[in-house]
Amino acid sequence: MRVALHTLFPLRPARVHEVCGAGAMGFAAMAARGPVLWIREAWLSDTLTPQGLLPLLDPSQLLLARPKDQMDALAVAEEALKDGALPYVVLEITRPLDLREGRRVQLAAKAGGTTGVCIIPEDMGSNASETRWRATPIFEPERQDSTLMRWETIKNKSGTLGVWHVRWNQQTSRLDVVSPVGERPGSSGTSG
């Protein structure tokens, strides 16, 4: 039986979710509702651009934290999740979280009632996460401003897994689920 995306996608609040893949940043931005704290280590050379975020999220709602290493990043994430002043926290990690760290951010999210999204490199998930997603952009020949992506849940603590093809609808600022793979031209060349 297919799982409907709406049972999973506005991400379950008061939990930390994980996302990997080439479209992870886009996933995190699309999932955000309201003010966001985006935690990104200071040494990373690539930058998030407000112009690129604009279709997905209002850049004036975004706060950036630039800690010097992952230890500080986790401390900031825990503090922000626990506080609850910002309903949504994005954390980019560069090395895998151990059990204790993963559990601590999860508990902090529970305490503050905030949603956390952890952008992880491939195969660096922690056991404590509520769900783990893989977001991959997909080529779409007919549309120029395509935002077609393949979202796949690869871990779900309280449900089954599923695969969806989604597209961001800029006019309504919401997600459209489109028909699945196989029935579409050009989807044969997907990666990941």
Binding site: P35, A42, P50, P59, S60, L62, L63, L64, A65, R66, P67, K68, D72, A75, V76, E79, A80, D83, G84, A85, L86
Partner: peptide
């Protein structure tokens, strides 16, 4: 009174990583 709560959070994060490292985008 969410601005107050947010400012307190920024202060607490700022004591850890430096207040200038909590940033926002301006056009």
């Amino acid at each position: 009174s969410s601005p107050d709560q947010l400012n307190d959070l920024i202060t607490r994060i700022g004591t850890r990583i430096g207040l200038e490292n909590v940033q926002r985008f301006l056009p």
